[in-house]
Amino acid sequence: MAVAEPTTPTPLSKAPQAPDRRPTVIADDVHIVYRVAGGTRGKGSATAALNRIVRRKPSGRVREVHAVKGVSFTAYRGEAIGLIGSNGSGKSTLLRAIAGLLPPERGKVYTDGQPSLLGVNAALLNDLTGERNVVLGGLAMGMSREEVRARYQDIVDFSGINEKGDFITLPMRTYSSGMAARLRFSIAAARRHDVLMIDEALATGDKKFQKRSENRIRELRKEAGTVFLVSHNNKSIRDTCDRVLWLEKGELRMDGPTEDVLAAYEEYTGK
């Protein structure tokens, strides 16, 4: 449990008994259903597609995938929460719902401020240089031009993009996936977030960057945010999180202190 810091500015609605148990994310029986077009068997040819359109058979074309089934939990300020589970268990989907990018089918997600989701699979704008992406990312997050200018060097230094030459002035499409992920993490981590969610970011960077980002996550937590981390690397979960949610087949299987849940998970996966 995080220790209450006397320097933290306390909000107006401060509960006198427990200033340290302020919820930041509440998931209330969240269900998420994907509707997938083109997930049908049958022929994938143009004539087959035309045939389906002519015969108006939409039901056959769209399949439903129930990715998250009734997950409820409450996250508090200052917590770092790991999300574990086998591939396809709904971890990333749940994060997207918390970020407000994917409206839940049933149930609700309440958040304090705007959660930010940090994924590794896409660069920001591939055609633009890293330099431009830093500026645009900062502005898009709502930083002022002065703030961006002031933080620019920190962001570039933190990402370590320029350690092997002047890569920041090259278009992002020329970056390796690891480099792009590092730059994205650095941009998003430059601002204080109420809720920061990281999707496997720590697994992609090299050792040195992993260390640095773990430290940065600790700093972000001190600044009174909540951090969610999806990872298949139990070590990085152990190093950064104090609470773990275990999802399996879209259901919340376990929620508790890191050691307890990881022990059960490792037994389940047969380690």
Binding site: I26, D28, L101, P115
Partner: peptide, 26 residues
């Protein structure tokens, strides 16, 4: 986490959200 009973314990998620000024995400 063995915390003492908390005044928020009996609240429904919606009440808890309202109490701390949380808004529906997205």
């Amino acid at each position: 986490m063995q915390a003492p009973p908390h005044p928020d314990d009996g609240l429904t998620p919606a009440e808890l959200a309202a109490k701390y000024g949380l808004s529906v995400s997205g």
